[in-house]
């Protein structure tokens, strides 16, 4: 596996506010990575730095072994930004040709036209007269104009209908299979979960979690084991905590509610095993898994509003 993108301790400060705060990660070739997080979490700013549109305040970035923003690097990347602007006065077909002329080894024209999904009559229309979805599809084709090795998509499916969205992701899958590296930002957990190999969860400018969708889900969702003690005499809460504290690798939280002892822990299997093996007099054991979307929403709601920084203005 080769590393295509590497960030080391990257921060970006806007007017004294840290939009990105000490972010480090490395991306392998041929993978699809989602930058997931609420608005203002630092996804777009991070992506802008990878694209060389913004300079980091601290830290180092490397893209395809070079500096982001370097001409040779740009020749090998493609990007679709949040606001898909289409140059006024040019027809879709002309735009595709124009973009092809920017790159040293452009993609096949017919392939790009197919990718844009535009009909022959739409190809002769100016971008301004297109629907938001059509513009986005055209933006996708333009991002692919240089037959890039790395693709960046900032909120790529906003405004796309279900069919177009499906088509877009099928195409992206294909590209990743060909060895292209894909990064996209989204604030939809569902999308990151179903389309990405790896999720970088952003929160308040930091990476709150990093892993496969399953790992992220496990980290986000609260799992718990609860039971009723057979006797009401002893201090069960303390006893359980002591028992688990000795044998459990990760920390577990023990609470009590209506006489029921609740153990919240990452590895509920291990908790169960310990409890059973200990031979304690317990009954009515339940394993609960919290709702994923609820957990994500909570994370989003906690911080989403106070970290809003308009990065677009800064670009």
């Amino acid at each position: 596996m080769t590393t295509v993108i590497e960030l080391k301790n990257v921060s970006k400060t806007f007017r004294g506010k840290k939009a990105v705060d000490g972010v480090s990660f490395a991306i392998e070739k041929g993978t699809i990575t989602a930058l997931l997080g609420p608005n203002g979490a630092g996804k777009t700013t991070t992506m802008s730095m990878m694209l060389g549109l913004l300079q980091p305040s601290e830290g180092a970035l490397s893209l395809l072994g070079g500096a982001p923003g370097d001409r040779r690097t740009r020749d090998r990347i493609g990007a679709m930004l949040q606001e898909v602007a289409v140059m006024d006065g040019l027809k879709a077909r002309e735009l595709i040709d124009l973009f092809r002329s920017y790159y040293s080894r452009p993609a096949d024209r017919d392939y790009l036209i197919k990718l844009s999904g535009l009909s022959p009559s739409d190809l002769n229309r100016s971008g301004q007269k297109m629907s938001g979805g059509q513009r986005r599809s055209l933006g996708f084709a333009l991002a692919m104009a240089g037959n890039p090795d790395v693709l960046f998509f900032d909120e790529p499916t906003v405004g796309l209908d279900t069919t177009a969205r499906r088509r877009f992701w099928d195409e992206v899958r294909q590209l990743a299979k060909q060895g292209k590296t894909v990064l996209f930002s989204t604030h939809y957990l569902e999308e990151a979960d179903s389309e990405a190999d790896r999720i970088l969860l952003f929160d308040q400018g930091k990476i709150a979690a990093d892993g496969t969708p399953d790992e992220i889900k496990r980290a986000l969702v609260k799992r718990s084991v609860s039971f009723l003690p057979e006797t009401a005499d002893a201090d069960w809460q303390k006893r359980t905590a002591g028992l688990l504290g000795m044998r459990l690798e990760n920390e577990a939280e023990v609470t009590e509610s209506n006489g029921r002892i609740i153990v919240t822990a990452e590895d509920t299997d291990a908790v169960l095993r310990i409890l059973i093996e200990s031979g304690l007099g317990i009954r009515d054991i339940r394993v609960d898994v919290g709702r994923l979307d609820a957990a994500f929403e909570q994370l989003t709601r906690n911080h989403g509003t106070n970290a809003q920084i308009d990065t677009r203005e800064a670009i």
Partner: peptide, 18 residues
Amino acid sequence: VQERTQGWSTVLRTTPLP
């Protein structure tokens, strides 16, 4: 002004066009 506000200049800066 239009090119900048519509984000077009930014798009161009991601391409190798000097």
